[in-house]
Design a protein around this nucleic acid. Structure first.
Lengths: 325, 325
DNA sequence: CTGAAAGCGCTTACAG
DNA sequence: CTGAAAGCGCTTACAG
């Protein structure tokens, strides 16, 4: 019923195998034949049948994107954005996206297994990087190519990671604030766990030490927010908004009484005033690089796998929440 | 290399076609044979090859999920949540999800075309419902089964829609506030467009009229927020937060000076204090119903298509932003 | 540079 | 209730 490669072949007066070669723009085919075949393709409105191609070639040309379990986390905007970025980049190379989501690890793992076992994907892009993760273990055991967005702590050097340099971001935050004249600076977090926290805080602490400045870590909702600090480095935008709210309720003003700088440049950063001065983590590049890395990884001989860590640049977005002392 | 249906057949001592029938639990096969075949399947760790099944059957068992262009909109959390809900429900019926996203309509449309033409999907779930939409037009022309989450205004009765009753939600907001003793109530929006706004506002206005109360529409950022109102019905949570911020900055208190009720129960609703009293729109059910509706639609004879509108119940979540006058 | 043929791993009438 | 066979629409050695 639908137009097949045979119809095109008949119309162009060639063999089906020739049409197939033209479709992948094989250099073996003469330009004349290519033109002839392409004409037939256009006239007939031919489209390749994805399933047939996959079955015959054994290549799915689709990447499974794995979301963290418990998507209820407040940092959701990130995931939709990176999914969009990944999909956009994948389109460029004619590859498709499948997804694995779920509320529990078991559910996600089940989906990952299914995608792989039913041969629906060539491999995965994993959108989280917990210290240890059964999904990742499975992929390593099965020798499935995959790429991580983030950096797990036990940085198994064999992993292929795409990430920002969170440590450097922490340092830069301090550098920016000291450049504004601040010296009494604290780091505010609502958690003591997670690589993102550890690295950003570590960077903050290292830079403060380097400048011989006294540094303090404040755990939000557990410890007193008010001290003698004139500036705060806050783990992310959503927390930044909360921190500022506390100050406002206490009759203080940001950035007049205290400057605040945060990370991520998410939708939270422009929700309220003062709008947040924050580091943009470049989600689009993060997604694009993940796809590119995956593609080069899976096209390579299994052996030559030169896994590596790819660092995506960040950028400080100066808005309203931080200013000269 | 991988285990195929033939391997299973050989081991179980039956024909491949029998294995295929057992896989879909055909009632034609005897229980004894089924047991035998299933044993072989387990022992061999067999998994069906998705592409082969799709090619042979012509059914992809996958649904394309279409996101609105310009995902940069602030209401993003909704999309990740409904994607998760859709995926969860789809899993139950062994169907997969493909996605179409993009920054412009053309890009989204291109992807939709591709998914359909390459026979990667059986149809679509469209996550938006603009008044007129070229993507939707394409699907209608091509007679592709699809389901809408939302309700387009020119409510072409032939469409299959899943939605909350936004008009009723608008009325309920008024009923709740009047129940709390409020009579001077305004509706706050940051737009005059979109079905969601129109229906929620319409419901608000109708109920106010019904109660012979004077009603007012305030467009945020264009018109003065402060009036003699004691309560505000706000289009969505994100706007609710902004509205409250304006009051706080003016030295007023919510809900002491003014009660606020919003819609969606998104992550914004519990971000700050006062936490928002808001209508939960039940995204999980929205997603599940969309999948179920799609499945019943596409399994049905093309003719008998009994498209319909499915209404998902909402629920008022009472938190801190509204109280007795 | 192009063709003929086998094959990818299923499904599904058709027989019996 | 089960089997044998054809076929889904491609890809890709193998020849020439």
């Amino acid at each position: 019923m639908a137009v097949t490669i045979k119809d095109v072949a008949a119309r162009a007066g060639v063999n089906a195998s020739t049409v197939s070669r033209v479709l992948k723009d094989s250099s073996e085919i003469s330009d004349k034949t290519k033109a002839k075949v392409r004409k037939a393709i256009d006239e007939l409105g031919y489209r390749r049948n994805a399933a047939a191609g996959i079955l015959a070639s054994g290549k799915t040309n689709t990447i499974g994107v794995v979301f963290p379990p418990v998507v209820g986390k407040s940092n959701q905007p990130f995931f939709m954005q990176i999914l969009t970025a990944i999909n956009a980049e994948a389109q460029k190379s004619q590859v498709s996206i499948a997804i694995a989501t779920g509320h529990e690890t078991e559910e996600v793992e089940r989906q990952v297994r299914l995608l792989h076992q039913e041969k629906r994907v060539d491999g995965f892009i994993v959108l989280y990087a917990g210290a240890s993760d059964s999904v990742r273990d499975y992929m390593m055991e099965e020798n499935i190519p995959f790429v991580l967005v983030g950096t797990p702590s036990e940085s198994d050097s064999k992993l292929s990671c795409i990430d920002n340099d969170n440590h450097l971001m922490g340092r830069r935050a301090v550098q920016y604030l000291t450049g504004l004249g601040h010296e009494r600076i604290a780091f505010v977090s609502n958690t003591r766990r997670g690589e993102v926290f550890k690295q950003r805080y570590r960077g903050f602490a290292d830079e403060m030490d380097f400048r011989e400045l006294k540094q303090r870590l404040i755990i939000f909702d557990e410890e007193e927010l008010f001290g003698d600090e004139t500036a705060l480095v806050v783990l992310d935008d959503a927390l930044g908004i909360k921190v500022i709210e506390v100050f406002i309720r206490a009759g203080k003003t940001v950035p007049k009484d205290v400057s605040v700088i945060t990370f991520n440049n998410s939708i939270f950063s422009t929700l309220l005033h003062p709008q947040l001065t924050t580091f943009d983590i470049n989600i689009i590049q993060l997604g694009a690089a993940a796809v590119q890395q995956f593609l080069s990884l899976s096209n390579k001989d299994e052996e030559k796998a030169d896994e590596q860590k790819i660092i995506i640049p960040f950028e400080l977005i100066e808005r309203e929440s931080a200013r000269k002392l």
